[in-house]
Design a protein around this nucleic acid. Structure first.
Lengths: 339, 339
DNA sequence: TGGTCGTCTGTGACCGTGCACAGAACGCCG
DNA sequence: CGGCGTTCTGTGCACGGTCACAGACGACCA
């Protein structure tokens, strides 16, 4: 870039107003001990010369940036599909904006990205980070910890990592929605368990077991790695082969449930006549399916808001307990037509 | 924030390696004229002291930031619904990452945001910007122009604004997809026209007129402000009241088409038996509807890639023609079941 | 031997801001 | 009038880099 036409600096303002740099700086930062006369002259001068503070210089002097990273460790394709991430992002963005911080979205897709992102986060460009969907032994999380960047997580961190976090009670919610199946008299209930490499996936499976108790059958557990529509469809087909008498299914996300629904209808099963189906997330999928899905409402936006607030607290030096139990936000079972 | 434990600087590296700051700087920037011996000593020293370059300092000295803003002027709710924006964002992010630039996502929702964002963009935090879905007389676009920040647009800019841009031929694409309706023998064809305050919305309506020619009937045009599912449903109901004999509909986005589909089925019309329906975008909606939608495929990801590339060209000082005609990427009509 | 050229290195100034410190101006009081 | 506290202002330095310049050094050649 041609180093631009050179912008007005604090010195230009000082000269124009007939005062010193220090006084201008004081006005900028709203400090006491500035005469009304000087203040007015300076405010006038700022308009005249078109002054805009230089963030880089301020960051350098203050050693902070008023920016917070929003790190999503997720394949690009899923970033687009997952409705929660968008809502979490918006929640975080709202809170940070109100605190006059900028949010920098960082999508870590390939492992190749790791180094670049770590360099960026360590480069003084951000004061802290919100991290979403960390895996077990996530290298990015380790990097954040190593450079001791104030960080909060959405979702429970891996064991041994002490970091403040917000999440939902995946286990309890999964149990509650599975009980909805059981209460309606279903006997042979299966699960399409996705993303078992995260705490959320594993916890939902556990909640499913809790609800079924002795009726739980390991043979009716189908695992898939990714939260995808296609995965739900395939898994459902497999489940029907394993147990044709199946009469209930818990799909651990709505997108997966939507895929499962397609497979069920294609196999000639009616929903909820022959088979009851429940999902998770209360995403747009749930309302748009025919029949609409019974599912779990997850306060995604609030998760983002709370995580961002945690980071701001850390930055403010507040004593945020890195409570291993984290903060759990409540979920609701939304009963619609599918179960 | 407690000004952190102080990180290693270029001077620490120099001391450790027994050379001067200048030499370290040269190694960092990959310049010629550094002895192998010095280079190795410095690389070694960087590891020993755990050196990470300070971006703020570099930005200050270079007067640039290696960051590019991605400005979305869209209500938060639509940011979540619109599948194109996600894809555009990813495309831009990919290109910028590969050029070792960071992308800063900025969502401008309320007008209250305008000032904060303008301040940010002018604060030397970004070298350039990609702007999506600018309105006519968009204040944010005007601000960008005023501070002469290198900018590229996705979508045609308002008349009189000279700025490089990429887009699609909305008019031609709308014409092509409408012709699909006409070819199949439909006579009374209506349109649900959304977002007429953008170039895209207005152009799609124009393309619709082109295709129908004398058969165009202003009475079969229903307008709605926002690209929403609910808007499609309501508009469809209105259209059926106006013309019960309607046998074809162009909804100017898939989300709107999906809403229209629901209304058609609820009104007892079969699709495509009684009424043919086409959408726009080829989003996930299109494939998931029953019947699947005939629609227009929009290369959203590539739009993001190209726009980002334009900004990088501007930054590199390449002579990017702010061609009023912009760059138009090709679209396809995807024929599925709904028409 | 001296001059020239190419390679390599160190030093000081500078980018634009915040902050600590020194001190000026003023009013008040003994 | 001198001392003191409060309010206000200016100056030097620091933040962590980049860059231009000067100069050292060795090789080569006339």
């Amino acid at each position: 870039m041609p180093p631009s036409p050179r912008r007005a600096t604090i010195r230009d303002v000082a000269r124009e107003a007939g005062v010193s740099r220090g006084t201008v700086s004081r006005v900028l930062n709203g400090e006491r001990y500035v005469s009304d006369q000087a203040r007015e002259a300076i405010e006038q001068a700022m308009k005249v010369v078109g002054y805009v503070p230089n963030t880089a210089a301020r960051n350098l002097a203050l050693r902070r940036s008023r920016a917070v990273g929003f790190v999503v460790h997720e394949p690009h394709a899923l970033f687009l599909e997952d409705p929660n991430i968008g809502a979490i992002l918006l929640g975080a963005n709202t809170v940070l904006s109100e605190a006059d911080h900028q949010m920098v979205t960082i999508v870590v897709d390939s492992d190749r990205d790791n180094e670049r992102v770590a360099r960026y986060l360590g480069g003084g460009f951000v004061d802290g980070a919100v991290m979403v969907s960390a895996r077990q032994r996530d290298p990015m999380l380790q990097a954040l910890q190593a450079m001791s960047l104030p960080t909060a997580l959405v979702g429970r961190p891996p064991a041994g990592v002490e970091v403040p976090w917000v999440g939902i009670d995946n286990r309890g919610a999964a149990r509650a929605v599975t009980e909805q199946l059981v209460r309606s008299g279903r006997e042979r209930v299966g699960i399409i368990a996705v993303g078992l490499d995260r705490d959320s996936g594993a916890d939902r499976l556990q909640g499913f077991r809790d609800a079924l108790g002795p009726r739980f059958d390991q043979g009716l557990v189908v695992e898939r790695p990714l939260y995808e529509y296609a995965a739900g469809r395939d898994a459902m087909q497999e489940l029907l082969v394993r147990e044709p008498a199946l009469d209930g299914v818990f799909a651990t996300s709505d997108a997966v449930a939507a895929g499962a629904l397609e497979a069920l209808l294609a196999a000639g099963r009616s929903v909820p006549g022959d088979v009851s189906l429940v999902g998770f997330d209360d995403s747009t999928w749930a309302r748009r399916c025919q029949p609409a899905l019974t599912t779990v409402r997850q306060p995604a936006r609030e998760l983002g808001e709370r995580a961002a607030a945690l980071v701001l607290d850390l930055l403010a030096g507040k004593d945020v307990a890195a409570d291993p139990a984290g903060t759990l936000l409540p979920t609701d079972v939304v009963v619609r037509d599918s179960a």
